[in-house]
Design a protein around this nucleic acid. Structure first.
Lengths: 225, 225
DNA sequence: GAGTGTGAAGCAGTTCACAGCG
DNA sequence: CGCTGTGAACTGCTTCACACTC
């Protein structure tokens, strides 16, 4: 039930990485960010309540979350910043470089393309596709914008792992159908539509409007109490 | 237990709008989008399973969600597209114009500023603040970019309801502290930090990285099974 | 003593199943 | 007969509390 603790190049066993609740996975992302900050400021050991305070949760939550990965804490002391950073990177799959294609080079697409932290985390946008003839052939950074009808070729040539959808809503479903056919297994969707795709393709939706509207709901509620 | 159904300008009673689960609120946003689509294509009545199919949930979920708002369905028939659209707009607080300030006119800020759907939904960005002297005094669309030190004035003058934070991570907390002091009650945070603010201020975080990293986790899991 | 790891309890959101109405 | 509305069962996440270890 315990991963050999002293191993330098440890291997995460399936039993642990299996069945980590989705809510926990999202928090692991945050913890990793905090750990990196702590590391930069020279902290070597961190307790669950420090992570909790930083992330707006409780210490119990942090410990439970981390316990899904194994036993990396030292009782009476906390967690080694360096070790835990390494573990989280591995669990989240951030040891690899992921090859990402950006579909849609409009406002949002361009902003995403230029968003530094993606690259720092190993998400390399190595292909950009757009259907606007005025854009095809131009460059985003040093990446050539390719025509939409070439997408299948591009996905194959660049061995794309993951696709970011930043095209207008009506175009999105048709495009991801082709993406799925080209055997890509992960889609990050910024288009304001609900995409339908097979079970084995991972999908996350980022909706700018949903968040704003939930704030609007909160404001309305606050107003009449 | 029932809101008088025939009233043209109906009023939503507190008992209903109270305690709608957050998860439901987010789905209501989606349903509203679908209803507007249905409306545009001339559909006048829609059943729970149609909404469910469109939104990737189940019919039971849709009915449960809508039941928090009252009884707007007709048994054997479904929901009136027009009526339900109206109800959702009201519940989500989209009958009002919300006055929004954008903090940070960088890549993300600019992209958000130019994102059309915000305005269509009644979120009007009426102020932009940045601390880069090169940007202050220029215009984003027809909005003058103001200096960061003027923020309090701007928030007051423009009677801002809601703030979008799109500044670099290190600047974010200091800025929202001032925003909170200026009595703004809602914050949409795009900066990659966990913000700490009083209970009575609504906060939503949009993290580009968290979503990508949860996909990365999913890809890693998929690979070794 | 300080702080982890974890069963068990508690809570919230989802799904089921069916009575009830149009 | 079709489809809603909803208590009841269920599932899964969070919190608690405490034994355990460094």
């Amino acid at each position: 039930m315990r991963i050999s603790p002293g191993t330098a190049s440890f291997q995460l066993v399936n039993e642990f990485t299996n069945r980590v609740p989705a809510a926990t996975v999202r928090r692991l992302s945050l913890y990793l960010r905090f750990l990196e900050d702590f590391g930069r400021s020279g902290v070597t050991s961190v307790a669950s309540n420090a992570l909790a305070e930083r992330g707006g949760t409780t210490a119990a939550q942090v410990r439970k979350d981390l316990s899904y990965l194994g036993s990396y804490g030292k009782r009476g002391l906390g967690y080694s910043v360096e070790e835990l950073t390494r573990v989280l990177r591995t669990v989240l799959g951030l040891d690899t470089v992921w090859r990402v294609a950006l579909l849609g080079a409009g406002r949002i697409g361009t902003a995403l393309f230029e968003y530094e932290p993606f690259r720092r985390r190993g998400f390399h946008i190595t292909a950009v596709v757009d259907n606007d003839p005025a854009k095809v052939g131009t460059r985003l950074g040093h990446i050539l914008v390719r025509a939409e009808h070439e997408m299948e070729c591009v996905l194959r040539e660049e061995r794309i792992d993951l696709v970011i959808v930043a095209v207008p809503a009506p175009a999105a479903q048709g495009l991801v159908d082709r993406v799925v056919a080209a055997d890509v297994k992960a889609v990050l969707n910024y288009a304001p539509v609900q995409l339908h795709l097979p079970e084995d393709v991972a999908l996350r939706n980022v909706s700018m409007l949903v968040e704003l509207e939930s704030l609007s709901y909160a404001l309305t509620r606050a107003a009449d109490c």
